[in-house]
Design a protein around this nucleic acid. Structure first.
Length: 596
RNA sequence: GGUCCCGUGGAGCAGCUCGGAGUGCUCGCCGCCCUGUCAAGGCGGAGGUCGCGGGUUCAAAUCCCGUCGGGACCGCCA
């Protein structure tokens, strides 16, 4: 070992001891005759002091030189303690200095006080990670892994790795593909999740499986998305929904207790999916604030206002969300909301303002509403004088989703989503199927319906025998856990009955040939006594980002990609040589033509 | 596929509306000074294709068009 102690661990108790430390020059304060250097290693920072002959050598130290030094721990002179440092009561008087390696001038200062652009941080991520906050984010993630592993091992779970080169699984996103040199023209897919493998492990009798699994989806970017991301993936046999939810709560509670110092009140409340849509316009509501939606379809039945009337007559929906204090918005701000709504595919966002003094309803829409509808409106939506009410009218889900997004936007503008406050909720009983026009999912089947979750999700018991009668109303044995408006995990009880599975495929318009082509191996496995099973997968990057207070999941990934899937550090992806191309068999025609 | 924002010495920003010499701020870097600092301080210095290409103009960091790169959002992501 280069060192006898770690820099950040030295305390008054070490005074008088000779120590050898190794680390980096974080900062130097050169006074000529005496030089102070903040020496940083993984454990923290300690001030070291150079005088006399060693000071001459220390003059040449520069930022981020890697050094080893020997000296004596001393109590700092009275009045010179630094209460901001854990080691602030002591310092190390250096007697010998060795420069282990020098550092070129830095592309950006390694200083917690300096803001640095993300582009350059990621390009030099190994320097970025020398800073305390990025380093702490990775350490927190390591702790999260440990907490989950400990808990799952205590409960008898088996950690099992599954392939990263596999066959495409039917999950709706685009696959990353890997050419198979030994089978020119054929390709592996990187898994979008270990979904099918974990179900096979249940057939295999493992009963309790988990994995911190890397998943790959070739989709466009968002702040909370990476082309490769991590799930805490779990599957259990002989369980029902409540068993999986109990386990999920235990994991989330342990994480928040140990890493955020927050005891989640349990049981975590549950919302049925339709109730979430009706009240919050989303399947992942942020319950840190109210602002619930109001269904006004019945209230406005018979209105002359064409926008509302046509929605109601065509069997649609009219609803509203209140913006407290919103009546004081300028014309420009109100126009801004129209633009905001158009960016989200709506025609606009109708509104009524309630005068702050008189409570009088105002605005262009108010002129089109009858006196009766206007006079009861404030009470119907729960608005007070000075508030604004936004309306959406049209198809039910679409309108609710628009209001739901407006609700989030209102909360953000009014600062209602308090950082450091936590709200957890399970959203259960989602629809089993969605009409095809809702998802444009063309990868699976040719029917009028598509799976909202995935085609192995079990219907709830009451729908198991009759989901064909009313596919739009059938409910799934599925559950998502939501934290502060972010989905952090989700899962379902799976279908283990071959007949139910066949009926689901039939409804989805998946022929037996297609089913056997795409996941015949799973159906084959299910011939051999598959146990009832279900599971859950947690979005590990999102959870770690929430726990570390990060804006983006990039902060909790050691080497994240930037937009367009580009890795600013290695420069990947790169073109390949003609030889690599030929060897990989990329241009070869497959012997067997598959049209799946 | 679409919308918006950003691109100015090594880092972070201002300058751009309303065109007039690469102008400014904070930090870093180099040299010298300095014996109690801790985001040390003082003096001096170096460092620029204002992302790139085109256009308008007597004159472009600034106005216009295109393009590249980054970020956010919509679509997409069960």
């Amino acid at each position: 070992m280069n060192r006898t102690h770690e820099a950040g661990t030295l305390r008054l108790a070490h005074v008088g001891q000779q120590v050898t430390l190794a680390g980096w020059v974080a900062r130097r304060r050169d006074h000529g005759g005496v030089i102070f250097v903040d020496l940083r290693d993984a454990s923290g920072v300690v001030q070291v002091v150079f005088r006399d002959q060693v000071a001459e050598a220390a003059h040449d130290l520069r930022s981020e030189y890697c050094v080893e030094l020997t000296g004596t721990v001393q109590r700092r002179p009275a009045g010179n303690e630094n209460p901001d440092l854990a080691t602030g009561e002591i310092e190390v008087e250096v007697t010998a200095l060795t420069i282990l390696s020098e550092s070129a001038p830095l592309p950006f200062p390694i200083d917690d006080h300096v803001e640095v652009g993300e582009e350059v941080r990621l390009r030099y991520r190994y320097l970025d990670l020398r800073r305390s906050r990025p380093a702490a984010a990775l350490r927190l993630r390591s702790e999260a892994n440990r907490i989950a592993r400990n808990l799952l091992h205590e409960r008898g779970f088996v950690e099992i790795e599954t392939p990263t080169m596999t066959r495409s699984t039917p999950e709706g996103a685009r696959d990353f593909l890997v050419p198979a040199r030994l089978h020119p023209g054929s390709w592996y897919a990187l898994p979008q999740s270990p979904q099918l493998f974990k179900q096979l492990l249940m057939v295999a009798g493992m009963e309790r499986y988990y994995q911190i699994a890397r998943c790959y989806r070739d989709e466009d970017f968002r702040a909370d998305r990476q082309p490769e991301f991590t799930q805490l993936d779990i599957e259990m046999s002989f369980v029902d929904q409540n068993d999986v939810i109990e386990l999920g709560e235990a994991i989330v509670a342990a994480l928040w207790s140990q890493l955020a110092g927050y005891e989640i009140p349990r049981p975590i409340p549950r919302l049925r999916w339709h109730e979430a849509m009706d009240r919050y316009g989303t399947d992942k509501p942020d319950l840190r604030y109210g602002l619930e939606l109001t269904d006004l379809t019945e209230y406005f039945r018979g209105t002359e206002f064409r926008v509302f009337a046509s929605a109601i007559e065509s069997g649609g929906y009219v609803g509203a969300v209140v913006m407290p204090g919103g009546a004081s918005q300028t014309r420009k701000e109100l126009d801004g909301w129209q633009e905001w709504a158009r960016a989200r595919g709506a025609r606009g966002l109708a509104y009524v303002l309630f005068d702050a003094e008189s409570g009088e309803p105002k605005g262009p829409v108010a002129k089109n509403l009858s006196p009766a509808h206007l006079s009861g409106l404030a009470a119907a939506v729960g608005a007070k004088p000075g508030d604004a009410v936004f309306f959406a009218a049209g198809e039910r889900w679409t309108s609710q989703e628009l209001l739901g997004k407006a609700r989030v936007e209102i909360a953000s503008r009014l600062g209602l989503a308090t950082p450091g406050e936590w709200s957890f909720v399970w959203v259960t009983d989602a629809p089993l199927f969605a009409p095809v026009e809702h998802s444009d999912d063309v990868t699976l089947g040719t029917g009028r319906w598509t799976s909202l979750h995935h085609p192995f999700t079990s219907p709830t018991p009451e729908w198991r025998d009759r989901f064909e009668e009313s596919p739009g109303e059938a409910l799934a044995c599925a559950y998502d856990i939501v934290c502060n408006g972010t989905e952090i995990g989700g899962g379902s009880i799976r279908i283990h009955d071959a007949d139910v599975q066949r009926r689901v495929f039939r409804l989805l318009g998946i022929t037996e040939e297609q089913a056997s082509e795409q996941f015949g191996f799973l159906l084959e496995a299910f011939k051999y006594g598959p146990p009832p099973h279900g599971g859950i997968a947690f979005g590990w990057d999102r959870i770690c980002a929430l726990l570390s207070g990060a804006e983006s999941i990039r902060e909790v990934i050691a080497f994240p990609k930037s937009g367009g899937g580009y890795d600013p550090l290695t420069g990947a992806p790169t073109p390949i040589t003609a030889q690599q191309r030929a060897e990989a068999g990329i241009d070869a025609k497959p012997k067997k033509t598959t049209t799946a």
